[in-house]
Simulated scan of single mutants.
Amino acid sequence: MAVTPPVLSLSPVLETPAKYLREMATRVEALPEEHPGGSYQYSKTWGWWLNTAGDVPDGVANAAVPTVTESWVDKQGAGRRLSTYGEPIFPEPDQEKEAREAGLVSGKKIDDAEYGPGQFPGGSPWQEIEPFAQNPDRLLRQLKKVNWEGGQLIVGVSDMLTYESRSGPVAPGLRAAALRVLADAPGLQVSTTTTWKGSKVVAVTQEEVWKGSTMRTSVFFDPETGYPMGSEEALFGSPRKLNVRVPATLAVTETLQRRAVSTVDERP
């Protein structure tokens, strides 16, 4: 069976998830407001996702391409995005040829694009419902207007905060409200973990069980600031139709830097 990079080990918190998240929200809410400090918000992320083809001679082929993405975004939703693609990961090295022929690995080593006002990717549909409420009940109603990937609340909360932070600081009250929305949600698990790049984060997790298979989706938060820090999708139990050994990682993202800068060429 093919092997993916290791699944993160999660350590459940001692308190109940709701209590832990509410206490974290209280600490975040007391933080001072951040000053923009520059025309653009710079962010740097790292990650990969497992691409799969099910119509190759050996049944299923998989490949992932580690990607570093840098972005510069201003308040008008204009800016630049630079993606640098690393060497592909082939869980089953013998399937490299099949994976490439199936189009699982393609494109340039570097993709550099600039965007005009309101054109930076990822704005819609969030820009249609902002400004976001700092009351948890009203914020939840706003979140429900968006179709989150996988229908999971943790994904919606993370996406909303990521959108809000892409062009400047997020108000402590909004970060706290997002944590309280999660605290009020049933069925969530809260843990601590160390990411692939060594950051200590809080992981909020939802699980989906289907025919002996468990899909675990975790989103990460900075324990001090409440900012989203990345995510992981991991598969346990039955591998479903994937030719991978479980537990398997299917997608990972991690925020490496977030800082205000003055130009679309500047890095912290």
Rank of each mutant, 00 (worst) to 15 (best):
M160E: 07
A171Y: 06
R141Y: 12
N51P: 04
D222R: 01
G226C: 05
G151H: 12
T162R: 04
M160N: 02
R27S: 14
L179Y: 13
E92R: 14
A203G: 05
E29D: 14
T69R: 04
R27M: 11
R216N: 13
P228C: 08
Y20L: 03
G54P: 00
T263M: 13
G37L: 04
I154P: 00
V60S: 08
T16W: 06
P117I: 14
K108Q: 14
P228L: 11
T84D: 05
Y85V: 15
P223K: 01
N51F: 12
A25C: 08
D265E: 15
V28K: 02
S238T: 15
G86S: 03
K108W: 11
K145I: 01
V201T: 03
Q189M: 13
A133K: 09
N51D: 13
P136G: 07
A25T: 01
E233G: 04
R81I: 09
G54N: 08
R166M: 15
V65Y: 11
G116W: 05
L50T: 00
E149K: 00
W210V: 11
D159T: 06
R81C: 13
P88N: 05
T195E: 14
S158N: 10
Y115V: 00
A171C: 10
E114M: 07
S262M: 05
S39T: 04
L174I: 00
R180P: 13
T16F: 12
L139N: 07
L182A: 00
S218C: 07
A248W: 03
P93C: 06
S165R: 11
M229Q: 08
V155K: 01
I110A: 09
N135Y: 09
R267G: 07
D184C: 01
T217K: 05
T67L: 11
E207S: 01
D137S: 04
V202W: 03
G86A: 11
M1P: 09
V261D: 06
T67K: 02
M229I: 02
V157A: 06
W148H: 08
F220V: 03
P66A: 11
R100V: 15
G151K: 05
P57T: 10
A78D: 10
V190Y: 00
Q152S: 07
V13G: 02
E254F: 06
A25Y: 08
A102M: 08
P268L: 10
W49R: 01
E87V: 10
L50F: 12
V202Q: 00
R80T: 08
V3Y: 04
A18K: 00
S11T: 13
S106Q: 12
E29Y: 06
G116P: 01
E34S: 06
E207F: 01
V170M: 07
P88S: 03
P17W: 01
A53P: 02
G198A: 13
T255I: 13
A113W: 13
A25P: 02
S71N: 03
A61K: 00
E114S: 14
L179D: 11
S71W: 10
G118C: 11
P57L: 06
W48R: 01
A176H: 05
A18R: 00
E34Q: 15
A171H: 05
Q152L: 15
R80I: 02
Q76D: 14
E149D: 14
M160A: 15
V264I: 14
H35K: 12
E23H: 06
V170Y: 09
L250Q: 07
K241L: 12
R81M: 13
I89R: 02
R216I: 09
G77V: 08
G86V: 08
G77K: 02
R259H: 15
V7A: 03
A30C: 05
S124I: 02
